[in-house]
Design a protein around this nucleic acid. Structure first.
Length: 271
DNA sequence: CCCGATTCCTGTAGGC
DNA sequence: TGCCTACAGGAATCGG
């Protein structure tokens, strides 16, 4: 499922093929995603040159001179560069065709993703404006987490998965980061020390950077812009490993639901 | 403000 | 083998 590393992998995979290219056509086969896909996309984009492919949180931003197309992959979405004549399959909801014969195709079986258009600064869009810092930026640090966590009564796992605190840390990487930092996911966010938050911020950066380097984590659906899966799943320490031995101490990994999300941790390494 | 529960959707795994 | 159910999950939204 696409978290930040998968979205960044997608961005890197598709950008070189379509940046600077002119849109020739847009085909929308399914308008009802997380929100309705705006009508009239073809008229809006055809003839315009794609200036940039960037990312904010788990959103991909296709920048044109007259606005930005905002894409989110939800939990089962993927974007691929294809030959513009490749027949569409069941869950191929959107094609953006370019004049050089390639197309950007959105596939999303569970349709939790979205396609939105804004003519204004995308960063000011209501979905992006209130988001927390990028985890790989300098603005994200142990000091920042410590300050934001004071008074919070929820668990640390839910805290770092809150997009208003920090973006891009989904269920997989939250469990993995807490393992690396040696913190039990059930701990109350407001009662964790500054020192431990330093370790946690470093762990989040390390896990995300390593996952990006591996092309993301493919559990089921995810493929990068080149249609290939990511390989970080082989390096997961706790996620999906309930009952299997901890790679550090051998204790059986536990699973517990926190905030309606499966959480995995080592009861010995994480206190 | 903060937090937990609910909601969207469909493929897959597990039980019988 | 096939049917049925539970579950997975990002993130907005609602209710307390």
């Amino acid at each position: 499922m696409p978290e930040l590393p998968e979205v960044e992998t997608t961005r890197r995979g598709i950008a070189p093929h379509i940046e600077g290219k002119r849109v020739s056509d847009v085909i929308v086969r399914h308008h009802q995603l997380r929100w309705p896909v705006p009508r009239g996309l073809r008229a809006k984009l055809a003839g315009h040159t794609l200036k940039s492919v960037s990312r904010r949180a788990k959103y991909l931003l296709l920048g044109f001179d007259h606005g930005t197309l905002i894409l989110h992959l939800g939990m089962s979405g993927s974007l691929r560069i294809i030959d513009d004549k490749l027949p569409a399959e069941k869950h191929d909801h959107l094609d953006i065709l370019f004049e050089h014969g390639k197309a950007l195709r959105l596939t999303d079986p569970r349709r939790f993703g979205c396609v939105l258009w804004t003519k204004d600064d995308a960063q000011q869009h209501e979905l992006l404006a209130g988001l927390g810092p990028e985890p790989l930026s300098d603005a994200f640090s142990g000091e920042y987490l410590f300050q934001r966590s004071r008074g919070r009564k929820g668990t640390i796992k839910q805290f770092i998965m809150d997009g208003k605190i920090v973006v891009g840390v989904g269920n997989i990487y939250a469990s993995e980061s807490l393992f690396l930092a040696g913190i039990n996911p059930k701990r109350i966010a407001g009662r964790i020390s500054r020192e431990r938050y330093d370790k946690l911020a470093a762990a989040i950066k390390q896990v995300l950077a390593a996952a990006i380097a591996q092309g993301g984590t493919t559990l089921r659906d995810f493929v990068g812009g080149d249609g290939k899966p990511g390989y970080f799943a082989q390096q997961l320490n706790v996620y999906g490993r309930e009952g299997e031995p901890c790679r550090v101490c051998g204790t059986a990994i536990r699973q517990q639901v926190l905030g309606q999300r499966s959480t995995f941790y080592c009861p010995l390494c994480q206190r």
